[in-house]
Nucleic acid binder design. Structure first.
Lengths: 123, 123
DNA sequence: ATAAACCCTAACACTAATGTCATAGTCAAC
DNA sequence: GTTGACTATGACATTAGTGTTAGGGTTTAT
């Protein structure tokens, strides 16, 4: 199939499909005129790429285990679990940081509201 | 005081101080030779900018209320509480999204571990 | 008068996946 | 044989604050 069809079937833009090729995630043969041709397995491959992107993995990270998880079940790939653990730690760091910011925001908001009330009550 | 001293006192880089000027956050007079000169209030102003940046506000957002909060107490500025609420909502959206991703990660990790164990137990 | 420390502007880099546009070749259908 | 749909590559834009470098003036102290 050509790139337009692959885009329609997967819902991924032409731009992104070409980008995945540049990043080494998605190979394509070429017709004589230079058009990319994909075999049927490309659909699942693109879906898999999107799956990992939504999990917060970068294309560079995905490149490290995509071939393995496409050939085997995820659990068979030894490199995948450490990647998950590392990504989880990253997410937890971000959650912690956002939580800190949130606390500070809420604290300031409460202080402002207290000041406004004390002013309104003629205090 | 000149920019180098302001940088030393506040711990903010020259680059950032000049950037704040471009963004309209921090005005500076000029000596005849073109050097920026700041009055003493610039120190508190820079500290205030940093305070809001750490709360997750952008320079554009800070520009909207900085003059008011520098002249008055925060609670006096009517525009500030809606900004806080908006920022809090933003943070909560991000927290929610990160939480979703985290759940998916953990779920996948558990599934992988289960598969590996069932394989190891000769299942 | 020279070295060291200071200041100026302007510009590129960075992150990272995607959108968009420009220019152009190819192909199918009518 | 021309229109319209499809494809190709390449390049710039996006976010946003900061780092860094280049090239060039100024001030201060010795």
């Amino acid at each position: 199939m050509r790139i337009g069809e692959l885009s329609r079937v997967t819902g991924v833009s032409l731009r992104s499909l070409r980008y995945y090729e540049v990043k080494g995630l998605l190979a394509a043969d070429r017709e004589e005129n230079g058009y990319r041709i994909y075999n049927a397995t490309a659909i699942e491959r693109v879906n898999t790429i999107q799956f990992y992107l939504r999990l917060g993995f970068s294309t560079d990270e995905i490149e490290g285990f995509l071939n393995c998880v496409m050939k085997n079940k995820e659990a068979f790939c030894e490199e995948i679990l450490p990647m998950y653990e590392q990504k989880l730690a990253e997410i937890d760091r971000q959650l912690h940081q956002l939580g800190q910011i949130r606390s500070n925001l809420v604290e300031r908001m409460e202080a402002i509201r207290r000041e406004q009330e004390s002013k309104a009550s003629g205090q």
